[in-house]
Structures are given as C-alpha cells and as structure tokens.
C-alpha cells in the first residue's frame, strides 16, 4: 500500500495504490492529514484508479478527510472508482455529499 501526492494549485491529488482496509487505513489517514495541514492545500481529489480492494473502512477514511478539508472551506471529490467500490460508496450514501467523476481531468475541472 502506497499513497502518492500531486499538487495542482490549491488542490491536492491523492493517489492510493493497493488495498484500502482497516489495516492500511491508519497509514493513509496520517499521510493525507499531514498534507492537509500544509498551507498550500485546500481541496482534495482521491484518485482510485490504483485501488485494488476496498471495504467499509474506506468510507470512514474518505469521510474523515472530507470533514478535515471542510474546516478550511475546501472541497473533496473522487475519481476513477471501479464498480465493486462504487457499490459500497452508493450503499453508504457518500455520493450525496462527495461527487465522483469518471477521470481526473473532469475532477480537476470541476474543482
């Protein structure tokens, strides 16, 4: 499991590579939160194109970061979600508050 960051102005693109479960959640949380604290970051886009597995632990991780950027009036979105993971997000109602886009270009444009 690996987390990669790319900044586009005040938007931080977070790419998660590998499995997002309870075991990896704490690492992802710490990594992303220490980036959010930096003055340059306001919005977050989660790139899910390299996520090979996710269970309900992922919902908590995304919602937690959403709340953290909301405190600095930032926005959160998700891009490149496969159908299995999309089902999990849909069940939780997460898409009602966090938009999902087919690819990164669209997500960046909508920020």
């Amino acid at each position: 499991m690996q987390v990669k960051f790319l900044s586009k102005g005040t938007t931080l693109i977070v790419s998660i590579l590998g499995e997002l479960d309870h075991h990896s959640a704490e690492y992802i949380r710490q990594k992303v939160d220490s980036e959010i604290i930096k003055a340059t970051t306001k919005n977050i886009i989660f790139d899910f194109s390299k996520v090979t597995f996710m269970d309900s632990s992922g919902i908590g991780v995304i919602l937690g970061r959403y709340k953290n950027v909301q405190k600095i009036n930032g926005k959160t979105s998700i891009a490149n979600v496969n159908s299995q993971i999309k089902r999990i997000f849909e069940m939780s109602g997460l898409f009602k508050i966090i938009p999902v886009y087919d690819n990164l270009d669209i997500a960046i444009n909508k920020m």
């Binding site: 959640a25 949380r29 269970d55 309900s56 632990s57 919902i59 908590g60 991780v61 919602l63 937690g64 999990i88 069940m91 939780s92």
Partner: peptide, 19 residues
C-alpha cells in the same frame, strides 16, 4: 442497521453488516 456504529470516534461508518 445501516450506519449504526459503536465506534464513530475511530472513523467507522457502520456499513459493515450492510455490505
């Protein structure tokens, strides 16, 4: 029940059983 969790402080969402 969907969204019920005893550990919200641990960022659990209460969706495990629903999944």
């Amino acid at each position: 029940q969907p969204l019920y969790t005893s550990k919200p402080e641990m960022e659990r969402s209460g969706m495990g059983f629903t999944v």
